[in-house]
């Protein structure tokens, strides 16, 4: 088998040498432009380029004129775009035009009048000549000798030492990117007994303040003297929704996480951490505006559409002795999107 194969190959070689190779077709004949042959066409092209440049100059003058001449509080109405400040519009348009016309003139000039003959330039060899290479080595050697690198060993050693040390500085600079987040991503300010207050005015809510069909945007009430930091604000927000109690279809262990039809979920999307704020009252769906993940409130924010992989964490709620809504316990899982060390 292999014999016939090699035999076949060699016969192929023989036949290819018998064929004559394709001759180099060379460059196609040069096509002359009208401006190359007719002086009138060249003159016309020259005028066109000059007009483009002149228009650019006019536009620049108009730019200055609109800066000086148009009142800052003058507004004009443009169909489809609405009312807009006249001066800013004029400045932008004239500047864009004057820059564009310079470019257009230059391109038109190059295309019609500048020489367009194809020119062949061969690549030069990359390797330098032997004399040049020898010369460079010589220059280095002489320099090192003149500086006395070989003799002044104190200088050589201190230089090497200082250069070695300076390489350590980036380690400290990189360390400043820390500290590591630790358990921060897994914890929130929610804990048993913490009151639910409205965002942004910090008003505690009673169950009777939330009607069926209502939502409220909620933050934890912070103890006297401490405030929510920006890091807290991306973990703690909760959305409160009230349904009729018979609308729910919750797992058995979550039935008492709801108070009189009021249910609370983390507002931070389990996909990418956007605020899941869109609530459709009729369908009982919560919707994330970033990637359209849709959560069904009736079943405990199970994902029914979109890229989110987990339901929104639910916050168990109840009321305190004064009737205000409080958290029954903290979140039982980390809120927000997945992260590397996420435990669940």
């Amino acid at each position: 088998m292999s014999d016939t194969h090699s035999g076949h190959e060699s016969s192929g070689h023989q036949s290819s040498t018998a064929l004559s190779p394709l001759a180099d077709p060379g460059l196609p004949p040069h096509v002359y432009r009208r401006a190359d042959t007719e002086p009138r066409a060249a003159k016309k092209a020259e005028r066109q380029v000059a007009i483009l440049f002149a228009l650019s100059a006019v536009s620049t003058v108009a730019f200055v004129a609109s800066f000086v001449g148009i009142e800052k509080d003058a507004f004009i109405f443009i169909p489809l775009f609405g009312s807009t400040q006249a001066q800013q519009l004029a400045l932008g348009m004239t500047l864009a035009l004057s820059l564009f016309l310079i470019g257009a003139g230059a391109v038109h000039w190059a295309k019609t009048l500048m020489p367009d003959h194809e020119v062949i330039q061969d690549r030069h060899e990359l390797r330098s000549s032997d004399e040049d290479r020898q010369g460079v080595i010589e220059v280095f050697r002489e320099g090192a000798e003149a500086a006395g690198l070989g003799r002044r060993s104190l200088i050589k050693r201190t230089l090497l030492g200082s250069m070695g040390l300076v390489t350590l500085t980036p380690i400290l600079l990189l360390r400043d990117l820390g500290p590591l987040p630790g358990k921060q991503l897994e914890t929130t300010n929610w804990e048993a007994g913490r009151r639910l207050v409205t965002d942004p005015d910090g008003k505690p809510l009673k169950a009777s303040d939330i009607q069926v069909g209502a939502v409220a945007h909620i933050l934890p009430e912070m103890p006297e003297g401490s405030e929510l930091t920006l890091n807290d604000m991306v973990k703690d927000p909760v959305i409160l929704v009230r349904l009729r109690p018979e609308d729910f279809n919750l797992p058995a262990d979550r039935k008492d996480w709801v108070h009189e039809g009021i249910i609370a979920f983390s507002k931070i999307c389990s996909h990418m951490g956007c605020a899941v704020g869109l609530y459709e009252q009729q369908t009982h769906h919560l919707l994330c505006p970033c990637h359209q993940s849709t959560f069904d409130v009736e079943t405990g924010a199970q994902v029914i559409f979109g890229p989110a992989a987990r339901p929104l964490p639910q916050l168990a709620i109840t009321v305190d002795s004064e009737g205000y809504l409080i958290a029954k316990q903290g979140f039982t899982e980390p809120v927000g999107p997945s992260f590397w060390e996420r435990s669940s």
Partner: peptide, 18 residues
């Protein structure tokens, strides 16, 4: 009143002044 898809913003959660 929270018409159609819009949720209700009752007077006690969002006061008339708000």
């Amino acid at each position: 009143t929270g018409p159609q898809s819009m949720p209700v913003f009752g007077d006690r959660a969002i006061t008339p002044q708000q």
